[in-house]
Amino acid sequence: MTQTVPLDPGALTPDQARALFRAGLRVPTAGWCTGRTQANLIAVPRDQAYDLLLFAQRNPKPCPLLEVTDPGAVSAPIFPGDLRTDLPGYIVYEHGEPVAEVTDVTEYWRGDLVSFLIGCSFTFEAALADAGVPIRHVEQGVNVPMYRTNRTCRRAGEFGGPLVVSMRPVPAAQVADAVRVTARYPSVHGAPVHVGDPLELGITDLGRPDYGDPVEVRVDEVPVFWACGVTPQAAVAASRPKFAIGHAPGHMAITDARDTHHLVP
């Protein structure tokens, strides 16, 4: 059955959103379930989980861990839904290559998979909006643009690869506000990793993101870049482990945790 996007997805509860995704709705989740924490998902077999855990520990800016499950678990304390069905989109990887993009990974799920829920910058977007900072991808109704950079993450065992960033155009006069607001959310990427010239990150064309959609950058705006939880999937592509499952970039796990849980004074 075809599902339609609710008129006000921000007003939904996490349970309501997860039910829509379980029924097959595929849509980026920026602006959904206002006040609730969103998370990136990456799941790997148990024999690779320690390396991925170490990769996250060594690269906390792009990989702030919110939860790690036991092998085979399909839910988590902050995510009481089903990790196999209750996200709006998944990518299945074999030897680092995407082999399927689906809305349900039940047929691919393995009993030895360890799932990692990693902080997402969508979590602080309501605070940015409250501070008057525009959220262009939400305004345009598209996915946030994400880019692989020339910055290399610290390797851990099998896993290594480039830092991935998300970009939001910010009016020059509000950049300091954007930095101040997001710095108070260190467990969901925190302050930006770069402000200004994308070439310093090896990004040659903002109009061609590696993941997500391009957005308008106006003449009075500065591109601002935050570390992104798609970084582990870039590590999967670079390191080519035998098997992994990740969320489709921008199509997040909506948890029961509140954004305020991640706010520091």
Rank of each mutant, 00 (worst) to 15 (best):
E107K: 09
P88N: 11
P145Q: 10
D15N: 04
L201A: 00
E97Q: 13
V27H: 15
G132S: 13
L128I: 09
P249S: 13
Y108R: 08
V181K: 13
T204G: 14
L25C: 08
C228F: 01
L83A: 10
R184E: 14
A244I: 05
H189P: 06
Y108W: 15
A238D: 15
T29K: 01
P134W: 11
L113A: 07
N150S: 12
P214K: 10
T255K: 10
V27S: 12
V193Q: 05
V133W: 06
T152E: 15
V230L: 08
L128R: 10
P88S: 09
R148D: 10
T13M: 06
A237D: 12
P80K: 08
S75I: 01
P77W: 08
E101T: 09
T69R: 14
L163R: 04
T182Y: 03
G196V: 05
A176K: 08
L41H: 07
E125R: 05
A129T: 12
E67I: 05
H251A: 09
A39S: 11
E125C: 05
S166A: 14
R258Y: 04
E216I: 08
R155E: 15
G119T: 04
G246P: 10
F122Y: 15
R240Q: 14
T69Y: 14
A173N: 13
C153S: 13
L201W: 03
G160A: 15
L20D: 04
A238Q: 14
M167D: 06
G10N: 03
T152F: 04
R155L: 04
P28C: 09
P77N: 12
L12P: 02
V142Q: 14
T13K: 11
V138D: 02
V102M: 00
M146E: 13
H194P: 01
G141L: 10
L117D: 14
I118T: 00
P6T: 02
D104Q: 01
P171F: 07
P169E: 14
Y90I: 09
A131Q: 09
A129Y: 03
Y90V: 08
A17I: 00
D82I: 06
V236W: 07
E97P: 03
W109Y: 11
R154G: 03
E101H: 08
P223R: 02
V44H: 02
H194G: 06
A234C: 00
T204P: 00
D82Y: 12
V175S: 12
R240L: 07
P241T: 05
L25S: 09
L7Q: 03
V224Y: 12
N59D: 13
T37D: 02
A73I: 00
M252C: 06
V215F: 03
V170W: 04
A172V: 05
G196L: 08
E221Q: 14
P192N: 14
V144Q: 08
V195N: 05
A56L: 01
P232Q: 09
V170I: 12
A244E: 13
T103K: 09
G160W: 10
H251C: 12
D112K: 07
V175A: 11
L41V: 09
